[in-house]
Design a protein around this nucleic acid. Structure first.
Lengths: 216, 216
DNA sequence: TTGACAAAGTGAACGGCGTTTACTTTTTTG
DNA sequence: CAAAAAAGTAAACGCCGTTCACTTTGTCAA
């Protein structure tokens, strides 16, 4: 079962030290605060040593991001399993996604950063790549969830793929606004204060309502 | 009428040169590609000269962002004026927001960057600040639009502030996903290809449908 | 056990960055 | 025209990611 030699174990330990130090800094300060030199300092190695374990700073950050996304996915899966009734399950999964994303705002935003040019050409080779990517997994999971709703007639008039993308956008947008606007959604003096929990629940409601509605 | 002295005119010209060069680079490459030294090079001045016109790189970028957001707002306002029927107006404004944001992805994302800590304490002094900020203006405008719907009974059961924030999140999320995922929403082999125009229209539809629906 | 080879680790450097400081040149103005 | 103010600059500071030549340490077959 893949026994590790002492050398491999040692290597693994150092690698983990780097990752742990990086995770800590990144969670608190994001990519801005994370520098190879600072990391090296914290683990008492030279900066150059880190390059024996990671090809580049981006590679390192990539690993932080995908570890986070794996956790996000497994949390949503657990929520899925914990709810029987379909609409409950929907709302709960949406909320779990949002809450978990908010636990690590720097990770979540970093996972969706970097402007992509929109290749109109149907470059379908990228689909495989996407499915294995962090965001791809989120898409697949919610697509399956929503398609159940279509099959059961709860969402009578939707196209699964379109509805999934819309719903995802809606969740994603809420997370992003909450991360970037310090007073969202509460403490707007133009309305009664509303706390995050109730707002998230209401947002999930609105979303489900839109999916359930018949065309106008 | 605030006549400008020749000195002031000259100063203004140089300032604009800097801003134009910055705008060009930023539109194409975002904050990554924008450096003071490169800017100085392009306009044939020394790097230090730029600091006679802008306090910092962030100040400069701030000006690019708010100029963009002003354009975004005025486009949405024009769309507002161009549509009479209420639901048409709603859908059209949503779509204009999305399209204009997508014209300058680097500007739009930069305007929503930087993780904020969530001051639970009702720090209401920030409201004034928010109202004058770029994102604050977007909020106010859509809030007024949606409140019209409530008053007219088109959106019968909504709370204006909550609905506005949800709707905004929904638009914002779509823009962000389109910017960050190269194949969104089309060219997913799990469904028929769908182009951006139709998808945006459908997304706006779904949103309006949610707002119109009665509680379940 | 030893000698060769690989792996781990390092100090110093390269080229880039935002920004500041001390300085010179140009322009405005009393 | 002199003095004050503004515009512009070269050089440096302290960061950054990354690379390279080098030394140290560990592994393993003869």
């Amino acid at each position: 079962m893949a026994e590790l030699s002492p050398a491999e174990r040692r290597r693994q330990r150092v690698r983990d030290m780097i990752l742990n130090a990086a995770e800590k800094v990144f969670a608190e300060e994001g990519e801005t605060g994370l520098s190879i030199r600072r990391l090296a300092d914290e683990i008492d190695y030279s900066p150059a040593a880190i390059y024996k374990y990671f090809g580049s700073k981006d590679d390192l950050v990539e690993e932080l991001k995908s570890a986070f996304f794996a956790r996000l996915m497994s949390k949503v899966e657990a929520t899925y399993a914990a709810h029987e009734e379909y609409l409950d399950r929907c709302r709960a999964c949406i909320q779990t996604y949002i809450y978990t994303a908010l636990e690590r705002p720097h990770h979540y935003t970093a996972a969706f950063s970097g402007v992509q040019e929109h290749d109109a050409g149907g470059d379908e080779a990228r689909w495989d790549e996407f499915v294995e990517s962090t965001s791809g997994q989120a898409y697949i999971m919610f697509r399956d969830l929503i398609d159940q709703g279509r099959q059961q007639g709860v969402f009578p008039e939707i196209d699964t793929a379109v509805a999934t993308k819309s719903a995802w956008a809606s969740m994603h947008g809420l997370v992003m606004l909450m991360i970037h606007l310090p007073h969202f959604p509460g403490s707007f003096p133009d309305s009664e204060a509303i706390d995050r929990e109730t707002f998230i629940a209401r947002h999930a409601d609105l979303l489900v309502r839109g999916l359930s509605a018949k065309k106008m």
